[in-house]
Amino acid sequence: MSHAGGQAAPAMPGRAVMLRTIGEPAGLAVLLAAVLALPFFAGAYGSRVGGTILMYIALAQSWNLIGGYVGLMSLAHSAFFGLGAMGATILLLNGAPVLLAAAGGILLASVLALLIGAPTLRLQGHYFVIATLIVSEALLNGARNLNILGFHGAISQNIGAFTGLQDLSAVEYNRLFYYIMAGLAGLAMLLVTLVERSRWGLALKAIRDAEGAASAIGIPVAGVKLAIFVLSAAIAAAVGITSSIWLGTFDTTSAFDLAVTFQVIVMVFLGGRGTVWGPVIGVFLVFTLNEFIGVEFAEISTIISGVIVVAIVLLQPDGLIEVMRRGPAALSPRVVIGNFRRYKVD
């Protein structure tokens, strides 16, 4: 399957490089400071919203690793999110300390990612996509029917009392989870940046763009795919664990909800798959839109998000990151019409 997303060369290389070397570290430092300082200005509610945005950045970037860079359209992300949370819940219910429970949840999701990835990653094309979708559905149904060690999949489990965090005030509590989510988002961003700038990243893109050729020049395709699949699953699990402990309850249906997977994929596509900043743009775009549309008209917001997905895929298939990269030129009619016709069948 060929991937024709071309990188645009900057108009003035010299100036662009200078801006990169000076502007980028400075900009990053400001951004980092702002992210770290936010909970002290924003209060409990602000920390909650900020933490949720960071959570989606972590999820989007971890999906971007497998979906954007390796080009594998995995629909199992919510399954690993749920598996991690479920593993941690079972351990918490049995008296494990919270950090051990989290580690156990991540381990459970990683082992299952290994078991699921090994056979499914061999499947070609849409078979892989469908297999991951069916796996997610099977795990959701399996978890719903699971009754072990005091865990009952059919009901909502209260885990707030087992974490030892219930004495914190609302502000402190939300601040704590904000920073955990910030750490996970930072980790995911770091991984994506490393992938973008290392030989590893080149190997991933080579697998995405020409799997046969990648294999021929000595890239261990199967091993690399499996490693990234498990890594991506482990991050999703860590986010799922944090999210359910933050909520104080574990509910099987919402933890394994496939809608999370699709929402994350939409964010990555809107911003730009296979890029460092694209998914971040996508997350902010979706959150801003939800803020404008509101959740009280669920039908209208569903229709509008559908229209936006269709419009971006047809008119800006490399994502809105193109507008950042190339400036307003990326929105000119000529470019947009060119994008529209790029993949047309004759």
């Binding site: 399957m1 359209m73 596509f269 798959r273 895929v313 790029r342 993949y343 047309k344």
Partner: peptide
């Protein structure tokens, strides 16, 4: 759909 037929299948 005719307009994405030659793109990557994720599109």
């Amino acid at each position: 759909l005719d307009y994405v037929m030659r793109g990557p299948h994720s599109l």
